[in-house]
Design a protein around this nucleic acid. Structure first.
Lengths: 200, 200
DNA sequence: ATTCTGAATATTATCTTGAATATTCAGAAT
DNA sequence: ATTCTGAATATTCAAGATAATATTCAGAAT
């Protein structure tokens, strides 16, 4: 029988996730052992498997909440009623850039985790991308509604913007450039994109 | 003394390059040995070093001529007098896409070579990027001159376009998507970029 | 003198194998 | 019944040994 992980105390799951997070951030995914996580939680390694399928599953759960964080902070950006659609797009792009750059620079072992996730759980990445497309689509639609933008196909445009800004989304590419360089790229790109979006 | 490699018979260099190319394409950079290349050329491995500094140097020379090829075919695109600037930009983006996709799909071991080049010879990549910026800049300037575009800072815009199309330039990313997907991305992105470039 | 090679050396990759670690599971503890 | 553990097993890692390979160089061949 495959024992379901539902109905198990959520607080213990959280405790495990927190212990794993600290280990993963400091020592990396590979160098962290299940035994260490278990010791931090004052339980046996075997018991971890009642709460998670395996080590990767812990990382996946952490990653999901990170991605959800990013998504919700990006959603906040476009819900800011005090800003124009153009400013929101700029904020969206820079928020993406800063979020990923911060993660990359503060987490020396991030790419390790990213690699682990990308083998076998590419669906998470796709889901995240789709969510971003949704957010961008409503940003554009709001811009259309307010008369600021004149975009005929918001969703297709959202996809194009995501394609254009992929350099700010890939934790593998971000570390190749300095923050200053990335900011310049983001500024130039935003300017160009806006020229195409704004009503003439 | 460091013996100069000039004044050596060019035809032998070419012969070596051709032998190495075939080996690299079929078996990859790492699995190809200097001894094998030498045997194909009916000479000793030691003699290869009269013509090239080392194994990587052979790959670098091959790569340079590939990049030069791409650059010259992109230059041809923008020199086509029968097309509008908009069409040229579209051609430029699709030519980049097709060129890299073709290379990736026809060369199973390409990423190996790319990795080898990227360690220590990043200058080649930068140089290539700068060349592409130049080409794009003159495309934009020509568009401005003909009254088709209204771009205030062509070079900065060229850089932004290159940033936006980076997904089509990276041999590490290209293989992640199907040709069909890439074409859709390229079409959507081109449309969006043109909206920002065309005179209103 | 120049071109080239075989043999020597330095560097890298591959393989082996003991040790660490992930995962499972029978059963103890509650 | 449920939660948990210790011990067993399966998998992965890593240090050392071995074998390939890159690179150099003294000197042979032309």
């Amino acid at each position: 029988m495959t024992p379901s992980k539902d109905h198990l105390p959520e607080e213990i799951r959280e405790k495990i996730l927190e212990a794993a997070r600290e280990r993963f951030l400091v020592y990396g995914f590979n160098k962290t052992t299940m035994a260490e996580i278990a010791k931090d939680c004052e339980m046996s390694a075997a018991n971890l498997y009642r709460f998670f399928d395996n080590k990767l599953d812990i990382a996946v759960t952490m990653t999901c909440s990170c991605l959800a964080d990013e998504e919700s902070s990006l959603s906040q950006v476009i819900d800011n009623f005090e800003k124009s659609a153009a400013e929101k797009l700029r904020d969206f792009i820079f928020a993406t850039l800063y979020y990923n750059h911060k993660r990359s620079s503060e987490t020396p072992h991030l790419s390790e985790m990213v690699n682990a996730i990308c083998q076998g759980r590419m669906d998470l990445v796709e889901q995240h991308m789709n969510h971003k497309i949704q957010i961008l689509t409503s940003l554009i639609q709001a811009g259309n509604d307010s008369g600021e933008f004149a975009v005929s196909s918001p969703e297709q445009t959202a996809e194009a913007i995501l394609t254009a800004t992929i350099i700010f989304n890939l934790p593998t590419l971000t570390p190749l450039f300095s923050l200053e360089t990335l900011e310049k790229k983001a500024a130039g790109l935003t300017e160009l994109l806006l020229k195409g979006l704004l009503k003439k």
